[in-house]
């Protein structure tokens, strides 16, 4: 634990605090993450920096561990919980920059499907990476995706289905985008256990994500100009 008086953090101390924040996320240490977030505010550290260089770095590591098969869903959920607790403390202190419009992603689990853990993990990873996430939740009526994408000027729609019986809903969303003449305006990514790259291609989606850890990379690629 760093304990220094307000506003006099040296660069090395700041770096150290960010590293500790990251470690708390990796370890799923909720109490530690909260204390460090408060410490950061007390010491006049930029809240956005603390999120991006501390918490997000930790979550990125979690994502890597998950991809490597060292972490599983319970571990990721615990890390996300630690991250969110620190974000709650830091968020009110973020200085908002109104000049740049963040890349927006509409997320949801398609109609009839309530399995939202994967989608929630994607949300966590995208949040941590600084994207604006419009989370439609689970069991989302097919028409809601197009509506939300238009209303929010979204760059990407991300859909997931965990059941073979609800997968066809993703195809319907793509069809609605085409019918609404909106397909060119937004990229579509899909995921969920029964889906494959092949399935993504057959329904006309742009990308398929193997698991939640691939989401950030996919959004980055889909929105690169």
């Amino acid at each position: 634990m760093v304990s220094i008086s307000k506003g006099v953090l040296k660069i090395t101390e700041k770096t150290e605090l960010f590293e500790k924040l990251a470690k708390c996320v990796v370890d799923g240490d909720e109490e530690g993450a909260k204390q460090l977030a408060e410490e950061a505010i007390k010491n006049g550290i930029d809240a956005y920096e603390a999120i991006m260089q501390g918490l997000a770095v930790g979550m990125n590591k979690v994502s890597e561990l998950y991809e490597k098969g060292e972490y599983y869903v319970p571990e990721v959920l615990l890390s996300a919980s630690a991250m969110n607790m620190a974000v709650e403390i830091l968020k009110p202190h973020i200085k908002i920059d109104k000049t740049t419009k963040p890349i927006a992603v509409v997320l949801g689990v398609v109609e009839g499907d309530i399995h939202d853990i994967g989608k929630n993990l994607v949300k966590i990873m995208l949040d941590a990476a600084g994207y604006k996430v419009i989370d439609l939740g689970k069991d989302v009526p097919i028409g809601e995706f197009v509506k939300a994408a238009k209303e929010n000027g979204a760059d990407v729609i991300g859909m997931s289905a965990l059941m073979t019986t609800t997968m066809p809903g993703m195809k319907k969303v793509v069809e609605q985008l085409v019918a609404a003449n909106y397909r060119e305006k937004v990229k579509v990514m899909i995921g969920g256990a029964p889906t494959t790259m092949e399935y993504a291609e057959t329904i006309g989606a742009d990308m398929w994500g193997k698991d939640a850890s691939s989401a950030v990379g996919i959004v980055k690629r889909l929105t690169a100009h």
């Binding site: 319970p74 959920l77 615990l78 919980s81 929630n120």
Partner: peptide, 11 residues
């Protein structure tokens, strides 16, 4: 609830 049950494994 699945997500809560998974977190309960830890908490």
């Amino acid at each position: 609830g699945t997500e809560r049950a998974l977190l309960d494994m830890k908490k």
